[in-house]
Simulated assay, not measured.
Amino acid sequence: MRITQGTFSYLPDLDDEQITAQVRYCLDNNWPLSVEFTDDPHPRNFLWEMWELPMFDMNDASAVLFEINRCREAHPDHYVRLNGYDRTLGRQTTALSFIVNRPAVEPGFRLEREEGPDRQVRYALHAYATDSPEGERYRK
Score class of each variant (00 low, 15 high):
H75D: 04
P54D: 06
E114Q: 14
R2D: 08
F98K: 02
F66Y: 05
Q18R: 05
S9Q: 07
Y85K: 00
H42W: 09
Q22S: 09
E106P: 03
G90C: 02
D77I: 09
D60R: 06
R2K: 06
A61K: 10
E115V: 05
A61N: 05
N101G: 03
T94S: 04
L14R: 01
D118A: 10
V105F: 15
E106H: 04
R113M: 02
V100A: 05
V121L: 10
Y85E: 08
V100E: 00
Y123S: 10
V80R: 03
S132L: 14
K140Q: 12
T20F: 04
P107Q: 06
R87P: 08
A61D: 09
A61W: 10
S34K: 10
L14K: 02
E36K: 08
L125C: 01
D77T: 14
L53G: 05
L27P: 08
I19G: 07
A124M: 00
L11E: 04
Q5D: 06
F46W: 07
L89V: 08
P41W: 09
E36C: 11
V35G: 01
R119M: 11
D28A: 13
A95H: 01
I99H: 00
L96H: 02
G116E: 02
R44F: 14
A61G: 05
L65I: 07
D77H: 15
Q18D: 02
F98L: 03
F46K: 09
M1E: 15
D118M: 07
L89P: 05
D13K: 00
A129K: 01
F109R: 01
R91C: 14
M50W: 02
N83L: 00
P103N: 09
E112R: 11
S97K: 02
L47R: 13
R2W: 01
R110L: 08
E52Q: 13
W48P: 03
N59A: 12
W48I: 09
D40M: 07
V35F: 04
Y10C: 11
P41A: 08
R24D: 15
P54H: 07
Y10R: 10
D39F: 07
M1L: 12
G84M: 05
P43D: 05
P103Y: 06
F37P: 05
A63N: 03
L47K: 15
N30I: 03
F37S: 14
H78A: 14
Q18E: 01
H75V: 07
M1P: 13
H126K: 13
E67Y: 14
G135C: 02
R44S: 12
H78W: 11
V121I: 15
P32S: 08
E134L: 11
V105W: 13
C71V: 13
L89W: 05
A127W: 11
R110D: 07
E67I: 14
R2S: 04
E73A: 14
E112I: 08
R44T: 14
R102E: 00
R137C: 02
Y123D: 06
F98T: 00
E73N: 14
Y85L: 08
L82Q: 02
Q120N: 13
W31L: 03
R24T: 15
